[in-house]
Write a protein that binds this DNA or RNA. Structure first.
Lengths: 218, 218
DNA sequence: GTCTATACAATGATAGAC
DNA sequence: GTCTATCATTGTATAGAC
């Protein structure tokens, strides 16, 4: 360790170096916040993991709290983009609802650490954590599902007796179960086949047609 | 404040005083753990809220971690009792499943702070928090729902094409949505009428009979 | 922009008197 | 069993050199 000379550092342009440090800090923060929790996470460990020093963190983010906010804002942007893609998809209501669930399932699976951090902050203590509006998550998801259900009712695919808000609740419940499964270490995640079967269960309740017992899928 | 004399303290038997201190500490701990989170909660504030001093806490529980464990163990016992009551209930599968959901909904609503603490620890960081087996919660709930579904299939009330495990997932999802609603401050809780409608949606998918569109309830 | 070195408050836990 | 007083450690954040 002692033999490593500082001049061995790869030279980069100042602007690149800047973005590099920010990125390293953000990624390190997600890791430490996830492992220790926001409150128990120390800036010491974060800068250590990022390979920078404390003043660098305070230069770029100002405080530990605003570092967390930056992490969450980036995650929120990505979530909103995925949500938008889901609603615009073509197909039957069934297909579109399954697509939304599948997309979110994949999105969560690919970003388990940051999702876990967001989850902890959302359901976490009111004092100590920064105020961050997570309700947009729920609201956007609910609005998307309701939109698809209403479209399905307009085409006659879904019975008018089912309240779109109720269907949205069930769908959000299913997404919640699947999401929380890979949120907690030690519980094996559920696969997409299971999701398809479970959603089929919900659809055959909310939708007009119904399979006979033992009848093959297609 | 200064004029309050120590001899104004109500005299109690030693054993009573003992239980009194333990109880005060447990209740204070739930409040502070809930408001600040386990990591950010200080033993100073806990003993202040309980009206005792630090050595009293360490005498009764040994550490902050074991105090949290004591809180969770008490909650786990109550949860297990409610779960057992739910499964033993008589009636149709529909009625029994609704009863389980309603009971849990009420139980969570009555104990929001401790449920929030348990939730945070379960989904919280792996380091720093004490190891506590929460998977029994999920497992007991899943086992209970599956049992009821299998009973319903045996009597012909529920179609054999529905996998009990899948139905359990949906039911757990619904319970999750309703529970998380009053877990987070600022979101209005859902009522029992909504729960009944939402479960009806699920049942009419999993169960054999199906209402015609627009047909009245009974 | 990034470093070394440090200020300063708060923490969990304990010793020892009563 | 409960107290007062205190310890060692760790926390966030900053001053000032480069």
């Amino acid at each position: 360790m002692d033999s490593v000379e500082p001049d061995a550092t790869i030279e980069v342009a100042p602007a690149e170096q800047d973005e590099r440090t920010r990125g390293r800090l953000l990624r390190a923060a997600v890791g430490v916040f996830d492992r220790k929790g926001y409150a128990a996470a120390s800036v010491r460990e974060i800068v250590e993991m990022a390979g920078v020093t404390k003043p660098a963190l305070y230069y770029h983010f100002g405080s530990k709290e605003r570092l967390l906010t930056a992490v969450l804002e980036e995650a929120a942007r990505e979530f909103a983009r995925a949500m938008e893609r889901g609603v615009r998809r073509p197909g039957t209501a069934r297909e579109r609802l399954f697509a939304i669930c599948k997309d979110l399932h994949g999105l969560f699976q690919e970003h388990v650490p940051v999702v876990r951090v967001a989850h902890s902050v959302f359901f976490g203590p009111v004092e100590g954590a920064p105020q961050f509006d997570f309700t947009t998550f729920d609201r956007e998801l609910e609005r998307a599902v309701r939109q698809v259900v209403e479209d399905g009712q307009a085409t006659g695919e879904i019975a008018l007796s089912a309240l779109p808000a109720d269907v949205a609740l069930v769908i959000m419940g299913v997404i919640g179960v699947f999401a929380t499964r890979h949120l907690h270490n030690g519980r094996e995640p559920l696969d997409l086949d299971t999701m398809r079967r479970v959603l089929g269960l919900v659809f055959d309740g909310a939708f007009g047609e119904r399979r006979q017992q033992g009848e093959p899928r297609q």
